[in-house]
Design a protein around this nucleic acid. Structure first.
Length: 888
RNA sequence: GGUCGAUUAACUCAGUGGGAGAGUGCCACCUUCACACGGUGGAAGUCACUGGUUCGAAUCCAGUAUCGACCACCA
């Protein structure tokens, strides 16, 4: 078993290449539904095939991968299903821009040729995404890789549409929708972003049509003044509304104003819902076809709805002299024309929100249009109930509010898009416009009784297919083995930004079609920002490419950093220095391994796990601590507290295993009096502890741990498939724990004296212990004292004149100073120490002197403080005594 | 306008009722045979502010300030 040749540094890139290939070849990540074990399944939030992955993806994948690796090791039957999303509008944009750069207008290409181009792009982008994920070391099942436009997923989408249609939950109708004039498509409410903007609130007058109309004060009313942020919309006005109780205007209700540009009389109506008499002039122009509030007014009052815009945002033939102008160019023209007629009534700056398309950034126009909609109210109910009743749980819980608030106030979902890239709507029309919704063209023909049908040109909102992702990827609508075995999924790991877009929609689609929630837990992770707290974005140029960081520090340190950052409920400010820090951790553990190797393969006494073993106190101590660490790491992982899990492993490895156990193991290994069984017990414990560390760490550092596992003696197979450490596999030895705690404390005190008084290590110290029992217990660590602090321990019998004083609990440790250090230094140290201790005593006395505290606090708390006071008092007295003995 | 979150050491961040923590950085000492990407020790905080509840508050409640996110929105 000579695996001795360990390089002095871990080669992250070589390990990544080697183990990726090895895992792949062994097929260890391919889910097998036939195998035993409770199911644990996660579907990836499918990245868009718009480009490459960013830090947010890397973060998400690190979390998912650590969860799946943890569960896989722990005996679960794990499926991590990867895939990508066609991202209709976003991807169409990417390819459209590329064509623009080549001077090609995508519309000239024609639908078929354009879609062909997008597929080419998809192959490129999808490949890059897969490559990036592989570099991260993800353990997903590539044999189940899915794309939302795969044939089987198209079948699922069609089924989704047809069934909802048959159930009356999808309808086609003319409604006011958000229109993107640049992409020339409808958008859902969610795809519109409201941007802060200081606009102009512009006022103008509509002349009253009826002549000689008297106002409340008897004077003649000739006009009403209205205000708008979009003056051009006045071309579509079909009413002016006032509050029905407003004494200034209520007599005008039923009268008319005359439109200055088009030949139209416009009624003045009373509407108490819309009009706030306190705001502005108290009169509101009503444009039912281009404003959501006005649309409602129009419905209430059966107003005509005049669409004034073409698909590209230019004004149509309803607009008289302004016909053909873009609506934004028309705005100043309309104002000019109003001014020319003397109807302008001033303007003021107006802070407002400008609705923009999430994708094209074009200013979105509310427009009357015939589109397909999902009727949301009936679907939202069960989705709400599932979370309210706890069938699905959000972590952190606070995101449930976000989810609720959206679903409780849900509006119908516009799902048709006037795009080319996406799932074609399974609806056909005959010459007279009758609609046939069917799974196939043939089915539609059957319904129609002939085949003179043309399919709807539109495609579906990307999220309409994403909504099915947890079950469409497993074969729905077929009833597959995968669905039986792995659905519902265990947990969804995603960002808060798509709770509405995706999480909520998967919830109602899943509940509606499978009768089950699509996932039991939803872990919402934080957003990764740059070191200044700014959102990473290409335009700001502050994007960190995950691959750069992996290149620099290795995938292991990179992943560990992401997880160490993953505290709940807080954004992550990415700091590359932290990756460097965890790179040191990699280095440290690697060197611990090198040490263990040396000891396990001495020429004359190589490690033999079968040989007799004898465990000393240190072995029993580190075993106890290993079990405790495993319990803490597991708990943290189970609670999705990845940062705590990472911190536990880090601290256990460094502060317990390296700092204490390895150092103390040397005392046995280098002790010529130690028996072979003792040495073998020590070697075995070194190995066992390393083995536990490596397995605990594996979900976070897959390559690194696989590399170590491979080199460890007596390990078989991959660490990937080894058992995750169980606390009950490690015996707890209370006596060893206590003895070690005492020893560690005493060593710490002596080290402090060395450090503070600058006593060189080469000068041996004698430690006189003021309590016989403790002296004896500490003496049992004689080799440790020698190795760790170059000291010997004896009971304090004849007190030397000059000693430095330290305390372990209430027991004094006296270190003779003669020939070691000058007395002034110790007096100095003592007085500083005394200041602290005296304050300590005062504080404790004050607390315990509080009658309320003693009476009302739980007895164990009071007892605890009493003990602390005793210790502090003893410490103070000992230090004072020492001080006076030294003549201070 | 509504909802939610944040404010803790120089920096990055943990910490949900019982004497303030980690990593990095800083200072001092140590080139001891796994590791100087290391070891040992040390300095460093009015837990944003004000009030309240409590024997006891970084932690719970109310309010204030600052920053941020999301949702909605009056022409």
């Amino acid at each position: 078993m000579s695996k001795v040749d360990l390089p002095s540094e871990y080669d992250a890139h070589a390990a990544a290449t080697k183990w990726s290939a090895a895992w792949d070849q062994a097929g260890v990540f391919v889910a097998d539904p036939e195998k035993d074990g409770p199911a644990f399944s996660i579907v990836i939030p499918p990245p868009n095939v718009t480009g490459s992955l960013h830090m947010g993806h890397a973060f998400e994948h690190a979390i998912i991968d650590s969860l799946t690796r943890y569960k896989r090791m722990d005996g679960y039957n794990v499926l991590w299903l990867p895939g990508t999303d066609h991202a209709g509008i976003a991807t169409q944009w990417v390819v459209r821009r590329q064509l623009d750069a080549q001077g090609i207008d995508f519309r000239d290409l024609g639908r078929e040729a354009f879609v062909e181009k997008v597929w080419e792009w998809k192959a490129e982008s999808g490949g890059r995404i897969k490559e990036q994920m592989s570099r991260m070391g993800v353990s997903c099942d590539w044999t189940r890789d899915k794309f939302t436009l795969d044939e089987d997923l198209q079948v699922a989408v069609t089924e989704h549409f047809v069934r909802l249609y048959e159930e009356g939950l999808i309808y086609r109708g003319e409604r006011l929708i958000n229109w993107d004039p640049m992409d020339q498509t409808a958008l859902s409410d969610l795809e519109v972003e409201n941007e802060d903007h200081v606009g102009e609130l512009y006022s103008f007058a509509y002349p009253i049509a009826e002549e000689g109309l008297a106002g409340p004060d008897g004077s003649v009313v000739t006009e009403v003044i209205v205000a708008t942020t979009r003056p051009e919309t006045m071309l579509g006005d079909t009413a002016v509304a006032v509050h029905p109780e407003d004494p200034r205007f209520k007599h005008l209700i039923g009268k008319h104003v005359k439109h200055p540009f088009v030949d139209r009389l416009i009624p003045i109506i009373g509407d108490a819902i819309l009009v706030d008499p306190e705001f502005g002039s108290g009169c509101v122009k009503i444009t039912p076809a281009h404003d959501f509030n006005d649309f409602e007014v129009g419905k209430r009052h059966s107003l005509p709805m005049i669409n004034i815009m073409n698909r590209d945002g230019t004004l149509n033939k309803e607009c008289g002299q302004f016909t053909g102008l873009d609506r934004l160019d028309a705005r100043p023209k309309v104002k000019e024309a109003l001014a020319a007629l003397g109807l302008e009534r001033g303007s003021e700056p107006n802070p407002m929100k400008l609705p923009r398309s999430q994708r094209s950034k074009a200013i979105v126009e509310p427009m009357l249009s015939t589109q397909w909609f999902v009727s949301m109210k009936p679907l939202a109910g069960p989705a709400l109930a599932a979370v309210e009743l706890g069938a699905t749980r959000f972590v952190p819980k606070t995101w449930e509010n976000t989810y609720y608030s959206w679903l409780r106030d849900i509006r119908d979902w516009c799902i048709s898009r006037q795009l080319w890239w996406g799932h074609r709507i399974p609806a056909w029309y005959d010459e007279s416009g009758n609609v046939f919704v069917a799974r196939t063209f043939a089915e539609a023909c059957d319904q129609a009784g002939h085949d003179q049908l043309t399919q709807d040109d539109d495609v579906l909102d990307t999220w309409f297919s994403s909504a099915l992702w947890p079950f469409s990827t497993m074969g729905w609508p077929e009833r597959t083995v995968d669905l039986d075995r792995y659905y519902p999924t265990s947990v969804l790991v995603t960002g808060f930004d798509i709770i509405f877009f995706w999480v909520a929609r998967m919830m109602f689609a899943g509940l509606h079609f499978t009768g089950q929630v699509p996932f039991h837990d939803v872990y919402i992770h934080a957003l990764i920002r740059d070191a200044n707290g700014d959102k990473m974005s290409k335009t700001k140029g502050n994007v960190v490419d995950p691959l750069d960081s992996i290149e620099k520090h290795g995938a292991d340190a990179f992943r560990f950093t992401l997880l160490a950052y993953a505290a709940q409920g807080r954004d992550v400010l990415w700091n590359e220095e932290r990756v460097e820090g965890y790179g040191k951790f990699v280095h440290k553990l690697w060197n611990a391994l090198r040490f263990c190797f040396m000891t396990m393969s001495d020429e004359d006494s190589s490690y033999d796990p079968a040989a007799p073993k004898e465990y000393g106190a240190y072995e029993r101590w580190i075993q106890s601590r290993t079990g405790a660490a495993a319990a803490r790491v597991r708990q943290a992982m189970d609670d999705y507290r990845f940062n705590e899990a990472a911190a536990e492993i880090y601290a256990f490895t460094w502060s317990e295993f390296c700092d204490w156990y390895i150092e103390l193991a040397k005392t046995t290994l280098y002790d010529s009096n130690a028996t072979a069984a003792q040495k073998n017990g020590t070697r075995h414990t070194l190995f066992e502890t390393l083995s536990a560390i490596v397995r605990l760490l594996h979900p976070m550092m897959p390559y690194y741990t696989e590399e170590i596992w491979d080199k460890l003696p007596q390990t078989q197979g991959f660490v990937t498939t080894a058992a995750y450490p169980r606390p009950d596999a490690y015996a707890v030895d209370e006596a060893a724990l206590q003895s070690m705690a005492e020893f560690q404390q005493a060593v710490g005190e002596v080290r402090r004296i060395r450090g503070e008084m600058q006593i060189a290590r080469r000068i041996p110290l004698k430690v006189l212990v003021g309590d016989a029992g403790l002296a004896e217990r500490l003496q049992s660590h004689a080799e440790g004292w020698a190795h760790l602090v170059n000291a010997t321990v004896e009971p304090l019998e004849d007190r030397p004149k000059a000693v430095a004083t330290a305390m372990v609990g209430e027991v004094e440790l006296a270190i003779p100073l003669e020939g070691v250090i000058d007395i002034e230094a110790e007096l100095d140290r003592l007085s500083k120490e005394l200041v602290k201790v005296e304050k300590d005593v005062r504080d404790l006395e004050k607390r315990l002197g509080n009658k309320g505290f003693v009476a009302k606090a739980p007895p164990h708390v009071v007892a605890g403080f009493n003990e602390k006071l005793e210790v502090a008092t003893a410490r103070r007295d000992a230090l004072r005594a020492s001080q006076s003995r030294l003549g201070g």
